[in-house]
Design a protein around this nucleic acid. Structure first.
Length: 666
DNA sequence: CTAGGGTTAG
């Protein structure tokens, strides 16, 4: 291979062949298309230098494009070293470099190169291909000033009539967090199309403005006549009628992407039910969901634990020939079954895609086992990964650490935490430290947990402090608990669970005065406890039980009657209600009676009435279990001889014969 | 050759 340093000499001696005809270039260029690694590329490059093909603009543009855009390791650096030696770079070569940099860690280079290109090229034709990348670079590197300059340039050159360019301007302002600016561009852009609408919807979703997103979604037109007219006008003025034609084709109503953006918007904003409602509406209108839609839908189902819906979607996949190894379908399906409590089905899916598993499939499986408390099994899957030489990523380790945490595998957790850094060179993020704090705290190694928290290279977040706080509840440390609560409340004054945990710490230590203080503090600040809510699936229908909910009197009467019966029977078996838990409730006094009855107890009573003997009762709860309900359900599982499976905020609990799969370790 | 939607995370 010819060293790069010799290139300039070769250039001058080969100058005569710089006008090679196109057909000569083809064999080598087609070799470039098939090129898979840098070493193959070096050979092709050497060949091009030997034959003088490097002076062929088209050929060298393919070379640069391959290096900068294929994502091959070291490719961009190589492209950057070749680029300055190209005597007459055209707009395609500039484009390849600009896009390559925009997607890299050094996206500012993209902006620099763009300005160089403008002064280098004689005309603007072809420049527009690079603008989307520059705009992306501005957004990514949070370069607001540069962003406005490029935007200004777009307006001056009339590239705003190019839909790719204008849509990228919208996207850029959204990336910069400037939703208002994005909306202004959106409202005034002459070539607004379905992509513009979809970007804007996603922008609102990311800003947490889900209702504004929905408003826009509902407004989406058949065809945007205003845009159409302005666009004809614009393109007419520059005589580009064929562009106008092309655009007309693109101007359709809501497409599958719009629906997916909206559905995923609900899921991301923790409103999975509305996501599912929209999905059903989409189906009823005869619009075909694709893999991306299904992934979001599965995520909504997983959140809700609606396994029946999940099974339906699973069946839909096979009838519509959507492959389990396409995109994130496999991991979403595994995750859905796991989060619905069907870990065996999750494993079956995982097994069935053994030939082409993506990293996400492995990660979903490991995290799935983790929330079922199957720590050993999760670690076995991780071993398989290593055996098959599959490189775990940072999310894999979150799953592994969480598996250790839920399984009480302290030493293993510490081992994997260092393995991750030493063998896999993964720099632990705040969530990894959070896992370690949780792992150590839960196991009662409170001082070590605090050490991790204090020595981590970033500021501790609410979750880390809450992990300490829950450890203090579990192991009864008032002083540390107060300290942790102080930090947690400072970081998230609106988060009721911080106050509730603190109140828990006091209650456990019998400090009722302080419990009352926490309660009044919450009242003063207007922080309301999230009401407990449990759902049970029976005969394909989801029944929700909310503390203080309005239930049909008859219905409620029947369920509450059953609950009374259960409590009586359990008391004969030695059940004593844990009164410390009741004092946690900080709702208004007049609801006190309802509050005595936690939603999971009602759900159990309902299940005992409605589910056939022998059928397990599946319950999904929105909050963490309280210890009274936990011991209550353990007893029910024995006295009534029932399998009861409860998913709380963190994990699954399998109750059978008086004990729980979490071994009281949660 | 350029723009829009997607999973796994204490």
């Amino acid at each position: 291979m010819v060293p790069i340093s010799e290139l300039p000499t070769l250039y001058s001696s080969m100058a005569a062949v710089s006008v090679l005809p196109h057909f000569t270039a083809n064999p080598t260029v087609s070799l470039l298309e098939k090129c898979k690694s840098m070493s193959e590329l070096h050979q092709i490059h050497a060949h091009m230098i030997k034959t003088g093909l490097v002076h062929h603009t088209f050929a060298v543009s393919r070379l640069v494009a391959f290096c900068s855009l294929s994502g091959v390791c070291g490719g961009l650096d190589y492209a950057a070293s070749v680029f300055p030696r190209i005597q007459q770079p055209n707009c395609f070569i500039f484009f390849a470099m600009i896009k390559g940099f925009a997607d890299s860690a050094s996206s500012l280079n993209s902006i620099l190169l763009y300005s160089q290109m403008l002064s280098y090229l004689d005309e603007f034709d072809g420049v527009q291909f690079s603008i989307p990348s520059v705009l992306k670079a501005c957004g990514r590197s949070r370069a607001f000033g540069e962003a406005q300059q490029v935007h200004g340039h777009v307006l001056k050159t009339n590239f705003q009539y190019d839909p790719f360019v204008s849509n990228s301007v919208v996207r850029m302002y959204l990336d910069l967090g400037e939703v208002g600016m994005a909306r202004r561009v959106f409202d005034t852009m002459p070539c607004r199309d379905v992509v513009s609408w979809n970007s804007m919807i996603k922008g609102y979703v990311e800003a947490g403005e889900i209702d504004l997103a929905r408003a826009l979604f509902d407004e989406m037109p058949e065809k945007d006549l205003f845009s159409w007219n302005t666009m004809i006008d614009g393109y007419g003025k520059c005589g580009k009628c064929e562009h106008a034609q092309e655009l007309f084709q693109m101007m359709k109503h809501k497409d599958v992407v719009s629906w997916t953006a909206m559905i995923s918007g609900y899921v991301l904003n923790h409103r999975p039910k509305e996501g599912l409602v929209l999905f059903r509406e989409m189906l009823s209108l005869g619009i075909q969901p694709d893999a991306a839609t299904i992934v979001s839908v599965l995520s909504a189902i997983a959140d809700l634990g609606f396994v029946e819906e999940g099974k339906w979607v699973h069946a839909y996949l096979s009838t519509n020939k959507i492959r389990l190894d396409s995109g994130f379908i496999g991991s979403a399906l595994i995750d859905m079954y796991a989060k619905c409590g069907y870990i065996e089905d999750a494993y079956r899916i995982f097994k069935s895609i053994s030939h082409r598993r993506s990293i996400g499939d492995w990660n979903s499986m490991i995290s799935g086992l983790a929330i079922h408390g199957l720590g050993e099994e999760a670690l076995e899957i991780f071993n398989d990964m290593e055996r098959y030489d599959i490189k775990p990523n940072e999310i894999t380790f979150l799953g592994v650490l969480s598996a250790c945490s839920h399984g009480g595998l302290v030493q293993e957790g510490q081992y994997f935490f260092s393995l991750m850094q030493e063998s896999y060179k993964i720099v632990p993020g705040i969530q990894h430290y959070g896992c370690m704090v949780d792992l150590l705290g839960r196991a009662g190694h409170l001082q070590e947990a605090i050490n991790v928290l204090q020595e981590m290279p970033m500021e501790a977040d609410v979750l880390a402090w809450k992990a300490i706080l829950s450890a203090c509840v579990k192991h009864g440390h008032v002083a540390i608990g107060e300290h942790a609560a102080l930090h947690a409340i400072e970081l998230a004054p609106e988060d009721s669970s911080c106050y509730v945990l603190l109140s828990n710490v006091y209650a456990k230590a019998g400090k009722w005065d302080n419990v009352a203080k926490v309660r009044s503090m919450m009242r003063q600040r207007g922080v309301r406890k999230i009401p407990g809510c449990s759902s049970v699936l029976s005969n394909g229908v989801v029944h929700q039980f909310l503390v203080g909910m309005e239930m049909d009197m008859m219905y409620r009467g029947r369920v509450l009657l059953k609950l009374e019966e259960v409590i009586c029977r359990l008391k004969l078996e030695g059940y004593e209600p844990d009164l410390t838990q009741i004092l946690l409730d900080v709702e208004e006094e007049d609801k006190e009676n309802l509050l005595r009855v936690h939603s999971e107890k009602i759900a159990v009573a309902f299940g005992l009435i409605n589910m056939k003997q022998g059928a397990p009762i599946h319950i999904v709860k929105n909050l963490r279990f309280c210890s009274d309900c936990h011991s209550f359900i353990k007893l029910v599982s024995m006295v009534y001889n029932r399998k009861i499976i409860v998913r709380d905020q963190n994990r699954f609990h399998y109750f059978q014969n008086g004990s729980c799969s979490c071994k009281d370790y949660w």
